[in-house]
């Protein structure tokens, strides 16, 4: 009887501990989303430096507008061959691409998500403007004095080219420090290293270095002239605006 009590106690304790971890993981991920999608809106200029295995560099530049957690507009400004190309991401996987040479926007389906964004090491999925809690189930794997380590697995109805992501999250400020992505076969695929800075009340991404482990190629995405809460109108995230280069 005593053994049974101990067993029941252990089972319940175990369940409680697991539940507590699950809640913690969810709460940590929500806090990370709150940092990543801070403010009502955000604008920035970004510079993407592509470095191949030989150390050769190429540079891409763009303007970015973001509102809430699921509206984002990218417009390339350099190099000249890509200037004017724009990409609009809206809720529910609605995406448009505008190429000035064709004079019209093109609706693009979610099959592009696994594709490289403009030759960088970021895929369309990496740049998707949607909260992590809406895409992944978190599990707290470990914690150190400074970081939480979460394993993120795609939600059942979530279409992802990653089988899981190991997220290293700053314990105090809840911004990501590193994200290790694994392909569908479970093999290490990409590593994103983050640098965060503070502006006013908000922490913002100052730089992401994405390394493709298979290709030994990396892209540094540097955010400059970051501004929050400038009151971007919803009309910015429209096809009408997309086609105005």
């Amino acid at each position: 009887m005593k053994t049974l009590r101990i067993l029941i106690t252990l089972i319940f304790t175990g369940l409680m501990v697991n539940t507590a971890f699950a809640e913690d993981a969810g709460s940590i991920l929500k806090k990370m989303d709150a940092v990543l999608f801070a403010g009502e809106d955000q604008t920035s200029s970004i510079r993407m430096i592509l470095t191949d295995r030989g150390g050769n560099e190429r540079v891409r530049e763009a303007q970015v507008w973001q509102k809430g957690a699921n509206k984002r507009l990218f417009r390339f400004t350099a190099p000249a061959a890509e200037a004017g190309i724009a990409f609009l991401s809206l809720p529910d996987d609605v995406m448009y691409l505008y190429m000035p040479a064709y004079g019209r926007e093109r609706r693009i389906a979610s099959h592009v998500k696994n594709q490289s964004f403009a030759g960088t090491d970021f895929s369309y999925e990496d740049l998707e403007s949607e909260k992590y809690v809406k895409r992944f189930t978190p599990e707290l794997l470990d914690e150190t004095d400074e970081t939480y380590i979460l394993e993120l697995t795609p939600l059942p109805d979530m279409r992802s080219d990653y089988s899981k992501i190991i997220a290293h999250i700053h314990k105090k400020h809840h911004y990501p420090l590193k994200m290790e992505s694994f392909d569908r076969g479970g093999q290490p695929f990409k590593v994103a290293e983050y640098t965060f800075k503070k502006k006013g009340d908000y922490w913002y991404t100052a730089e992401i270095k994405m390394t493709n482990l298979r290709r030994n190629h990396s892209t540094r995405m540097i955010f400059e002239e970051v501004a929050f809460d400038t009151g971007i109108d919803d009309s910015v995230f429209s096809v009408r605006n997309l086609t105005r280069y």
């Binding site: 996987d93 093109r106 609706r107 693009i108 389906a109 979610s110 099959h111 998500k113 279409r159």
Partner: peptide, 11 residues
């Protein structure tokens, strides 16, 4: 029209 069925783009 243009849209998608699953991940396939259609028009």
């Amino acid at each position: 029209f243009s849209g998608s069925i699953g991940r396939i783009g259609i028009w």
